[in-house]
Design a protein around this nucleic acid. Structure first.
Lengths: 218, 218
DNA sequence: CCTCAACGACCAGCACCCGCACAGTGCGTT
DNA sequence: AACGCACTGTGCGGGTGCTGGTCGTTGAGG
């Protein structure tokens, strides 16, 4: 397991590093965001333990960079501020996990290991495609900058289609992913919902139909 | 996003479910481990929110089952006991995240979303051969870079021929692979479909006839 | 009590599927 | 060389399944 520790408090950083090394991880340490970005560009880390309050380049920016660059690296945010709003914001930015200082060392290790087990990294928290911006955490959709109000189901359908990354998604799959198990298999809600979704998203069309296969967003 | 909530305290379980539904997630609820295992076997959840202290089948066992079965489903452990040892143990068992009760609801949502943000596992392979590019997931066909619109049947036939990797495929085999089981064995749809396919794909010919054996793409 | 999302029922248009009929082609037999 | 047969290519027309779209009802939440 390859880990990068980014923490400006050198004493803490080194302590964490030695602790992780004792747990058989390969650990690099840097003390500011700039150095972090450098190392990330060069090396291929499994997990980055990232202090949020960094001098020069803020931890949030480092996190955004990692997530946005599509690397397989996972981010564990670390911060002094421990209230809920902070934690939620950290996760919203795109971190894979979040731990508040002071933390118990075994928990840090356990969370790093849990992240290391995940085969694939998180996608960017904001989905963008074909002039549509979807922010799941805010439950907000923008079409060419203008906000579009959607009902929960419409939003769920749009989210599934956006995550499909251009692939066609059948009505059955949409029903499977956006509805719970009580859904009637012979319903036509999906078609109706797709229609209202199309109407709200306006011109030019965003959701295309692929005859015989379902719907897709190019 | 498809979520299963497993929590024996029904009031809490339902509250969580409605909260998540308001956030556009498709939520199923069960109140014990047995039912959880059942649902997991049937449905394909993105995330399972799992109370650790369950009657009958313990949450840990459910978690182990999910991890062991190799599903892409992520587990978020939930528990009343909030000390570090518990959290570490939960993560060690194979949970992807861990949240101690009482928790703030926005944080639960943020963590579920973080878990659900995983990338689609495998990029579907694109079939390429003889100047033809077929992308099954997008239902898209390109001939020398130009897009060719195909009907579902035409697409199905082309896909079978492409996957045959140059080998000849008989009409009977095509009928078997691209049509459902109640197809008339004495039909000539295959011939007709191959014809329209050829016409749409244009010159030079892509689908060749192997007299007595069927069709093939060199 | 009011609003709106969710959803079933229904209709219309159209592309598509496919049966049918016939033409063209290649090969073996006489 | 002529013929017949088996196989293949192609035009045509009808039925129908798929999709877009509307409307009215229901039910939950404010």
């Amino acid at each position: 397991m390859r880990v990068l520790v980014v923490e400006d408090e050198q004493v803490l950083a080194d302590a964490v590093a030695t602790g992780l090394r004792r747990d058989s991880m390969a650990v690099d340490v840097v003390y500011d965001g700039d150095a972090a970005l450098e190392r990330i560009a060069v090396n291929d880390y499994d997990v980055v333990v990232l202090d949020r309050d960094l001098p020069l380049v803020h931890g949030d920016d480092v996190c955004r960079h990692i997530v946005h660059s599509g690397l397989a690296t996972r981010v564990l945010m670390l911060t002094a501020a421990g209230d809920v709003a902070d934690r939620v914001e950290g996760l919203t930015i795109g971190a894979d996990d979040y731990l508040a200082k002071p933390f118990a060392f075994p928990e840090l290790i356990a969370r790093i290991r849990a992240l290391g087990r995940r085969a694939v990294p998180a996608l960017p928290p904001v989905l963008e495609r074909a002039g549509i911006r979807v922010d799941p955490s805010r439950r907000e959709v923008l079409r060419d900058g203008r906000q579009v109000p959607l009902s929960p189901k419409e939003f769920a359908v749009l989210e599934v289609l956006m995550r499909a990354d251009g692939a066609a998604v059948s009505s059955e799959q949409l029903l499977e992913k956006a509805w719970d198990e009580n859904a009637d298999p012979f319903t036509n809600v999906v078609r109706v919902t797709v229609m209202t979704l199309r109407r709200k998203l306006g011109e030019p069309p965003v959701v295309l139909t692929v005859p015989g296969a379902g719907y897709r967003i190019p």
